[in-house]
Simulated assay, not measured.
Amino acid sequence: MERRTFLKNTSLLTGGLFIANNLSALPPAAGPVKIAVVGCGDRGTGIIHLLNQMPDLFRVTAICDVLSFRLTAAQKLSKTGAWKAYDDYRKLLDDKEVEAVIVAVPLNMHYPIATDVIKSGRHLYLEKTMTYNIEQALKLVSLMHGRSNQVLQVGHQYRYSPLYYRVKEMINKGYLGKVTQVDCRWDRNGNWRRSVPDAALERAINWRMYKEYSGGLAAELLSHQIDFINWAFDTHPQEFFATGGIDVFKDGRETYDNVQLMLHYPDLGLIGNFGAMCGNAHDGYLFKIKGTLGMVSLLTDQGMFYPEKKLLSEKGTVDGVTGATRIVWNKEGGTPILPEPTKDGTWYAFNDFYKKIQNKELPDSNVFTGARTAISVHLANEALYNKKISNWDNSYKLD
């Protein structure tokens, strides 16, 4: 396993984990951080909606997209007058007012834009998956070395949810016992396409369907769950098995609409099963982590703990596990991990992004952890599309 010096000095705090580090950011800004959004599609505009609810933390000052109709639509979200609008992100980076940049563009463009943002000296919120391939991930790690005046946060937002912090804490304290299986799904019933006003824009708009631009379901959906397992257990998969196909929508797409990944973590004795499909939405998002003492079953905003019978017979109660004021069992023998659903993970992520900029701290989802997950996704896709078993190369340098 690679050295991970950035995870040293980790300590448990009430309600979650804090990762100490020696990266520093710019001096605390006077007032909100002036931020620009590169990529005004669904994700970019969704983030803009969120930032509009955080006027004390962030102020959007500029937007960028190569599609003019998206810029026009995004401008309507401004509550303070027209933002500066660019069709070339390099022109945006000439804007001296911008202190931080959000990059929410097709996956194949993450690396070149991120590289230029970093070299410009700005803080960066880079959407997941961090990079399109392994080489780019390693280059970003190298590029961030010595840049103690910048924060790079990767958009694996569940690392910031109080629910997922609590589950990580439960795992670390041994409440689940020895975990040997993880079962994850992220399903939908639909073609995942966006409407195209001009046939010439098919690939620009529906980039997720084409291998040149996209990592498909593994990168767009399953990367979140893969990332959480990497984080919760401080590990990464060593062996990658996968199968899939274009089994529902015969519409010219290249990325599979039906995939199943099996990732092996031999250092833990853990097998992770990660599946996604576009042909049935009944399960939707499922995330089950199974140990000898109990299982957690997670949605994005709430979760249940199901103790094994031997835990109940030995301990009598699991109130200390969940932190609940009293045990409330459902008909299946589970109890809520938190008393109420959490907010959307992106809300917690951007609150933390602001804090990390102000307090000179390394984000929980950073260039090192982002690289580890990007490499995992790339190797999973290599196994999926090349019909082979892929293996982690221990020569990868992630510190």
Rank of each mutant, 00 (worst) to 15 (best):
P162A: 01
L384Q: 04
L140T: 11
N191H: 12
S161H: 08
S297W: 08
P266F: 07
D344M: 02
Q181R: 14
N394S: 09
E220C: 10
K315S: 12
A281C: 00
S365R: 04
A30T: 12
L398Q: 06
G291E: 02
L221V: 02
I375F: 09
V66M: 13
H378P: 02
T235E: 14
F6R: 04
I19S: 08
A218Y: 03
M144C: 13
I271L: 05
G39N: 09
E169R: 15
P339T: 11
D352N: 08
T292M: 03
R326W: 12
V248S: 14
I35S: 00
M54F: 11
P336K: 09
K388N: 00
T300C: 01
Y354Q: 07
G15K: 07
L217D: 06
T180I: 05
R203A: 08
F6H: 14
K388R: 15
L57N: 06
D94Y: 04
A383M: 07
M1F: 13
L23T: 13
V296D: 00
G216N: 08
L312N: 13
G252V: 07
G81E: 00
S223P: 01
S376L: 00
K76L: 09
K343I: 01
V141K: 12
D87R: 14
Y354L: 01
Y125P: 00
P307K: 12
F353R: 01
Q302G: 08
D87E: 12
A29E: 07
G215M: 08
A20M: 01
N381P: 01
D183N: 14
D344G: 00
G190Y: 07
L379F: 12
D364T: 10
H145I: 11
N391L: 15
K128L: 10
M304R: 15
K91V: 02
S376Q: 04
K387M: 04
F241G: 02
G16M: 05
G146S: 03
F249M: 06
I205D: 06
N52T: 01
G291N: 05
M54T: 02
F240K: 10
H110V: 10
F274D: 04
Q157I: 00
S148M: 09
I327C: 03
A100P: 00
V182T: 01
S395T: 14
A82D: 14
H264D: 15
Q75W: 06
A219V: 02
L50C: 04
Y354K: 06
Y213F: 04
T373A: 03
M209Q: 07
T300V: 09
S11E: 08
I118P: 03
K76V: 03
P32M: 10
R59A: 15
G320L: 08
L261Y: 14
G155Y: 03
Y165M: 13
E169S: 15
N258A: 08
I229P: 02
W329D: 06
K288F: 05
G370T: 03
Y175G: 02
G294D: 06
D65T: 07
E361V: 01
A25C: 11
E2G: 02
G121E: 04
I63G: 13
V98L: 03
T373W: 01
Q358E: 13
D65C: 05
K388A: 09
M170W: 12
I102Q: 05
P197V: 11
F233Y: 10
R253F: 09
Q225N: 12
H236C: 13
D88N: 15
N191A: 05
V248I: 14
Y213I: 04
K355C: 04
